[in-house]
Structure formats: C-alpha cells, structure tokens
Write a protein that binds this DNA or RNA. Structure first.
Lengths: 216, 216, 216, 216
DNA sequence: GATGAATGAGAATTCATTCAT
DNA sequence: AATGAATGAATTCTCATTCAT
C-alpha cells in the first residue's frame, strides 16, 4: 500500500545531476530547476528529498570524496612497499584511468570556492581535507622511514603533496592547454620522490641533497 | 571649466572593493550593491565606470596578475644563477613576505572557479596562465641546462610547478589549518629541485635518479 | 495527486493584461509589475509563465491577429460575389461592430513601433502582414476579374488597401477627433472601389478612368 | 567677452540626433547619452539646452512637421487646378523624391505611438493633425466643387486620405517588402480620385458611381 | 511521493536628471 | 557654455523555497 521507498535512489539522482550542472554553470547558477531537469525530476520533488540546496552540495562533496576513497583503497591494497603505497595515493587522485570524470575535477574547483564562503561547506571540506592530510602523513612517514630519512617535516610535505594534486585538478580544469596529457600523475610522482630524497638522513641529520635558496 | 576626470581612481577603488568583498563572499554573492558600499559609492556610479560586473572582475584579474608580475621582476633582478632565478619564480608567488594579502589568494581560487563558466574570464585567465607557463619554461630550461639535464619534459615540469603553486594558494585559502606557516614556499622549492634532479642527464640520457611506479 | 495545469489560462490572462496596459502606456512603460497588477498576479509568476517580456508581446500579436482572422473568416463565409468578399476584408478590420476594442487599435500602433526595433517582433509582424497581403491579393484578383479589369497592379493595390486600413487604426487611436464615427469602413470601401474602377479593362488595355498627375 | 550664442545650432543638432537614434531604437531606448553621442555632445549639455527629454521630442515633431509644410507649400505653388492641388498634398507626403528620409517615416510611427501615452505629445500631435485635416478639407472641397460633386462627406474623406498617407508610412517603415517601390504615391492618388468620383453630384444628389455594401 | 504553480526577496542594469567644477 | 561624475528610482529577470492538490 505504501509506496516503496525510493529516497536513496532519488537522492543519488539529484546529487549526480548537481555534479553535472555545477561543472558547467557553477554552484550559484546551478538552479534547482536546472538540477531537477537534469535529473528528470521536478523542482518540488528536489526539496522533498533535500531540505535545501546546500544540503545537496554537501551530499555531493561526500560522494565525490567517497569515490576517491574507494579508488585509493583499491590501489593501496595492490601496492607493496611503503614508497609504492605513497605513490598510489598520488595516482588515486591523478591517474587519468582513475578519474575519467572531467566534471568531477571542475566540481572540486567549485567546491573549494564555495568553501570560502559557506561555513557548512568549509567545515565539511576542511574535515575531509584534514583526514586526507592525516592519511598522507602516515604514508609519507612510512616511506621516509623505509628510505632512512627523518620524518621531521612530514606536515609540510603532506601539505605540499595535497597542494600539488589539488593544483593539477585546478589547472587541468581551467587551462587544459598548458597541461600535457597524462603528465600530472607522472610529474607529481617525481615531485613527491624529490621531496623524500631531499629530506635529511634520519641518523646523521645531514641533508639528502641540498635544495632551494643557497642551493648548490 | 570642465569637471576633472577621476575615472582611473574610481575604477581602482571599485576593483579593490571587489577584491575585498569577493574574498569573503565569492563572485556571485559579491553584489554590486555590496561592492559599491565597500567602496563608499552608489551602485549607479559603479555602472557608470564599468559597463558590467564582469568587466570589474576582468579588471581585477589583470590587477592581481600585474602585482605578481612586479614582484617577480623585482626578484629576478636580484637573482643570480639560473637555478636561483627559477626559485625566485616560486618565491614570487608563495613567499609570505611577498603576498601578505590573504584576500588575493582567496580571489585566485574564485577566479579559477569563474573561469570555468564565463568565457571571457576563461580567455583572459588562460592567456595569463599561458604567459606564466611560457616564462616558467624558459626559467626551467636555463636551470636544467645549468645542471646538465635534458630539457625534454619541460612542458610537463612547468605545468607541475604552476599546479603546485596554485594548489598552495587553494589549500591555504580553504583549509589554512593543514598548511604549516611558511611552509609552501620551502616545500615547493624542494619539489622543483626534485624535478630538476630527477631529469636525466643531457649527455648520457640516463636518469638523474629513478622515480615513479617501480621506484626503487 | 499532481497539481492541475493552468498555464493556458494564466498566459491568456497575462496577454490580456498586457493588451490593456500597453494600450494606455505603450510597450516600454508597460512594466511587468504593472502587467502583473492588472492581471492580479505577482511579477514572479509572470516570468514563470513567460520567459521574457518580449514573449508576452509576441503572444499578444498572435492573439490579436487570430481575432481578426476569425472575424474575417466569418464575413467571407457570408459574402457572395468577389467584390463583396473583397469589401468583407475591409469590414473585418474596420467595421466598428467587428472590432469594438479601442485598445486593440492602440496596440497595433504600438506593435508597429516595436517592430521597428525588436527583430523578433519585426519578423513576426512581417510574416503576418505578408500573409494578409497575400490573401488580399487573391481577393483583389477575383474582384478585378469579375469586373473585367487587368490584375496587373495587384501588389500595389493590396499594399494601398492594407495601408489605408492600418492608417485608419493609427488615426483613430491617436487623433480620434478627426475621424467621424463609423466613417473609416465606409471611406475605405469607397477607396477600394475607386482602385478597382480605375484599373484598365482587361481586354482593351485602356484605363477605366483617368487618374494621377495630369488628371483632369 | 560673453560667449557667442549657439543655442539654436545646438538645439538643431540635438533634435537631429534624436531623429537618428529614435529611428533605430525607439523613443524610450533613445537615451540622452546616446543622443548626445550622436550629436557629438555631452549628456549634461543636452539638458542645458532642453529642460527634458520630452521637450526634445516635441521639438522634433515640430521640425518634421515643418519640413512637410515646406514641401507642401512648394508643390501647391506649382499646382494649377484644384484637383492638381489636392494631389499635390498626397505627393508632398509620399513622393519618394520629396521625403528621401527613411528615418523620418520611422519617426512618425514612433511619434504616433508616443502620442498614445504622453499627453503633451498627444496634444501637439493632435493639433498638427487637425491642422492638416483642415487644410485637406479645403483642398478636397475645391476639388469636389471643380468636379461638380457635393462636399457633404468632406470630413470623412479627409480622414480617409490622411489615414492612407499615414498608413503608407507605417507599412513602408515596418514591412518594406510588401510595398512595391514608388507605388504609395501612385496608389493613394488613385484612391483619392476614386473617393472624389464616387461622391454624388452636387445638383442631382445621385451618386457618381455606386460603391461598397450592395455594390454589385 | 510527486507535481507544478506561486511567492518574495534580491540580482544586474539603465537612465533622466542634477550639479560641482 | 560645457563637462562628466553622481544620484536614485525603476526595470527585467532569477531563484530557493513553499504549498495546494
């Protein structure tokens, strides 16, 4: 007698529609009507399943994050030594085979921009980013140890790696022309290795290699 | 007899106001009324000096870009060898002493997001980014040669460096907590050096150091 | 379960309101707010049913045209010989019994003025006018033949008749004082007959009566 | 010491500019800024010479009317008999050689539309039209008498002729395609002659020729 | 669950007019 | 006379959200 519950599917439909529309129009311009149309639904129904537009956005952020999570777990499971695991993190985010969705990259840029001005979005975004940073620190620590380096700067290194990844999405989304195809994953891997190798040895405290400023 | 022109000052005033408001509210929410209020003007006057809101945004992009440009030129003038010049590029964008303006970083994130959906903004943003990439390629080429490395991957490297810089701004703006103070400049310098040193030697063709996937 | 659609009625309501307001204020001054108030609706709702103000205008043009069309068909059905049918065309547009709506005449003037500067309006207006001219040519041709006249100038004649009709609306709307009540239909009928009778005979080629320049 | 007065030239300049801009944009959209630009002046100066935008429009109406007036007087001076004088009236308004200005025709359409909603414009327009109608009645009366017809319907006839002329301008301006080149003057002349010849004889009271309704 | 009409609060933009210079 | 900045009201249009059905 009661209708079968279909809230879960409906919510997924709507979130996916927001992803699509937002990638083209940005968040503000992704009107509920447009999202509903993209999902093949009516505007009223959208608000039946979500209490506000912001709630859809938050859902989308969680969704996109979980997709990365899944990708990452699969790669970590296949990876062997600590260094390979660290590089798996990079690949999970940048390997073109992993994230075939150009729309998702555009969305991350938009989400970042929204995080600047919607507190709820910022909170969620920060929490997720913090989680990623934490995980990355663990991976980095293991890799550094496996290479016999100190783990002193691990926070700064993690931030740098996250930044490079985020920056690649940003650049690829906004200025595809300057990014050679397939290069981001490779280049970021090399940057990561460069960071590790330039870390001083754990025992001696002398640098792996010199860097920066007074370099050479 | 005639009233003296003050368009230049007014335009600067308005652009600065947009910078301020946009950093907090994003572009869409930076209403003309809000921008005018921030600048101490009336909305009508804003449209007397700019034909549209978009035109203010484009002006702001040019402005911010020029500020970086000036900073970069000053640092290049002081830098000595090719490697120092390359690192000066990084510092010009990330040295906290250089860009004390937290608002500017937030704006770059927003600008990137707008570039996704406003063609005019994209065109301008792309042109400027392309210019930066070109300059960076030159600096990289010189640095690689000075170190006796091939210049084969220079495009990918330039993209990677730009991405890392942009990503640092992004991360610092959206999730300041995960970025240790002052670390971005230092970390990116190390990533840049890592990229150079992992490039194969010009003569032999053998890699400087291994990297990536099967990384030893 | 679903809410019943009422778009058709609403659109009709809004179009009628535009007719009323536009007759008094002209198109530009017929603001959406004024039209909505006239229709007893809110401005937002007007834009829910019409995507732009222009679309309302286009709808109104079609509406007014259809009303004439209906009137004309009724009269043609009642008319007997070719000449009577031709005069029915005149009456359908000018008989005060046919078009009791003073507002409609004012609107046609306004519509003509808008056609001068809105391409979409011009296109529609032209198409409809062209259709009328075509029909009028047919009626004229039949009437001329019935009277044994050549059909040589039929295009110019049709244009003249249309102009006279349009001009009557114009004059009646802008300067009612100079138009004796009920005279337009009668006078235009006489002008039409004058055109026919001054056309040369089909066989002989000699004019029915002299006219123009050196007219004696 | 005092500047030489140039008000007259300036006013003429501005009125001409309104003519040009209004022909393309209509009255409402003919902004003071646009008119000033067209005249090569500044907006402030326009209001120095005219107290309001409406006043420019009224000036333009007078101007256009005077131009017709001059044209008409010239033709009347050359015309001989009463019928020729009557037809001169038609030609003064429609002869392509007389009114080479396509913009003027468009303006008359626009002016008519404005007369519907601006009282001052209506008053002026009505006064001028009434004047024309009066003059036309005189010409018609003379022509009818010369042809031995009654002058009974002269008001209705004058209205019809004015309507036909106005309608030709309207049609030519809005739908040039349906008006064969050069035809308006010729066709209206024939309509005018038709009106005269269908008027009943002065003495007998029997119609010149049958017309309309039961016209067989 | 679902529909789609309805609302009301802004949004950018335009513009006649005023006024200090 | 002339300039051009400044104002303030009005305009079209958008949209998240609500709600009767």
């Amino acid at each position: 007698m009661a209708r079968p519950r279909n809230t879960q599917e409906r919510r997924a439909q709507i979130v996916t529609a927001l992803l699509t529309v937002m990638a083209k129009q940005g968040y503000e311009r992704a009107s509920i009507v447009a999202v509903a149309a993209e999902a093949g639904l009516t505007p009223g129904l959208v608000h039946y399943h979500f209490k506000s537009k912001q709630e859809i956005l938050l859902s989308l952020v969680v969704c996109l994050h979980e997709a990365r999570r899944v990708e990452l777990d699969a790669r970590l499971a296949r990876a062997g030594d600590p260094v390979a695991r660290l590089l798996a993190f990079v690949d999970a985010h940048l390997d073109p085979a992993a994230d075939p969705d150009r729309a998702a990259a555009a969305c991350w840029v938009t989400i970042g921009a929204e995080a600047l001005r919607q507190d709820e979005v910022r909170r969620l975004f920060e929490e997720l980013t913090r989680g990623q940073a934490g995980e990355l620190r663990l991976l980095l620590t293991d890799a550094l140890r496996a290479r016999g380096r100190t783990t002193a700067d691990v926070e700064a290194l993690a931030a740098g790696v996250l930044a490079a990844i985020q920056g690649c999405h940003h650049l690829a989304a906004t200025t595809p022309g300057v990014v050679p195809a397939g290069s981001p994953a490779r280049t970021v891997r090399r940057m990561v290795m460069g960071l590790i190798d330039s870390q001083s040895s754990a025992a001696s405290g002398r640098p792996g290699r010199s860097t920066g400023g007074k370099a050479r």
